[in-house]
Design a protein around this nucleic acid. Structure first.
Lengths: 231, 231
DNA sequence: CGCGAGATTGATGGTAATCAACGAACGTGG
DNA sequence: CCACGTTCGTTGATTACCATCAATCTCGCG
């Protein structure tokens, strides 16, 4: 692992307060692996053997059921996934696949559970991280149950614009089909939703989306911090 | 508080492993309050001042947005709510209202956060409980994104039947409009979904629902432990 | 240049929300 | 005890939203 990667992981909210020894143990016990795009890293229903940290690349969390499948979230560097399954020693509820060439640190679940008992600061960080994930999931339920597809898209655009520097230009880092699944709609409907948003100042150029009138878009989206904020 | 109520709270997964002192502190610091039906206990957007424990009665967690509102969950005795907001000292994402005459123990948030630092067993239980809530929420996202309304209703019926003793008779403990909102549909659509389920062995008599052919219902519902199981 | 995957557009059907009316159940007050 | 009113649930008609199927288009790449 490159020193700057180790430093980035150390700076994660989950690890930043942990004792040096705890952090060292976890990272030393972990495997840093490289994967090409499109590789399935974990499968729902499998027992949770590793906590995963995306060091580089892009990972899609998805789930299947009733003959359909849906994207639950996109994990960027440096983010972790399936912490909850690891802690309670349960099976994964979601599957994960790489969207790009990626580098993933895999930490044995048992080590994480041990660290939880030996390092109170780490335990506190785990609580914070879990609570954050819990709240994110509740927000997603609200997003799905309270909004139409076009509203979800509008709010996603506004949020992503801010995340990318509020320049009014949003670059989609993955395929539109993935975005449509993340937003809970079909690719066809996403395409139509984009057409609708043209009248509200959204223009598409391939994977690049321009927001020319963010106020108009916000009027349509009606963003709500209790759904859209990351905190 | 009646001794049997205290004992029931003590037996909660969240408290059962805690030190006697921790538990005593939390309960002594708490207020046990009685509320008539229809009272709003907490409002989304308000800072999280108390951890709530439903000792008796029934509480609906709900949320608003985009001019609509939706039921997120129903909390029965003895269950807790808004643990995540309390731990991270944030605002509530959900509101709560009593559906029946209820008795609720309110524990000051600050005490909970302190106990987290002084009692490792309690901290471990909090982690387990949070992870459980997180996974429940992810399951609910899957339920919403992967299933139709009739499928959600069928699975709810099957699960509730088991919870009530697998007698094939399910008693709805609250209004149908609440159930419809919990399932993410309108009251009208719930009514129509029930009609559809008649052909699959479901008959309605007021608030009592009979499942006369659970196999047929299961064929329609296609229950999935990764969505429907409580664990 | 031609292929193929992804994206778009069109046509259609299904699922769900909305609006409106009616009916059943319950509680209250006469 | 009954009449009335309110609330909840159901049913019907209509509209909006979304999924599906099919065809075409775009673009990157061999």
């Amino acid at each position: 692992m490159r020193p700057e990667d180790a430093a980035a992981i150390r700076d994660l909210p989950l690890f930043s307060d942990a004792q040096e020894e705890t952090f060292g143990d976890l990272v030393r016990a972990g495997f840093l692996q490289r994967f090409p795009p499109g590789v399935v890293l974990i499968n729902e229903r499998d027992p949770a053997d590793f906590l995963h940290v995306v060091v580089e690349g892009l990972v899609e969390m998805f789930a299947t059921g009733s003959g359909r499948d849906t994207t639950i979230s996109i994990v960027r560097p440096v983010g972790t996934f399936i912490l909850a399954a690891v802690l309670n020693d349960q099976v994964y509820l979601q599957s994960a696949r790489t969207l790009e060439k990626s580098q993933v640190l895999m930490i044995p679940a048992e080590r994480v559970r041990v660290a939880l008992g030996t390092d109170p600061a780490f335990a506190r960080a785990v609580v914070t991280e879990l609570a954050r994930g819990y709240r994110r999931a509740i927000k997603e339920v609200k997003n799905q149950k309270l909004r139409t597809g076009a509203e979800r898209l509008s709010n996603w655009l506004l949020k992503e614009d801010v995340a990318q520097g509020a320049s009014g230009v949003v670059n989609l880092g993955f395929e539109k089909r993935v975005l449509s699944s993340l937003l809970g709609m079909t690719p066809e409907n996403l395409s139509r939703a984009f057409s609708t948003l043209r009248e509200h100042g959204v223009t598409i150029h391939g994977a690049q989306m321009r927001l020319t009138d963010r106020q108009a878009l916000a009027r349509l989206a009606q963003p709500d911090p209790l759904i859209d904020s990351d905190e």
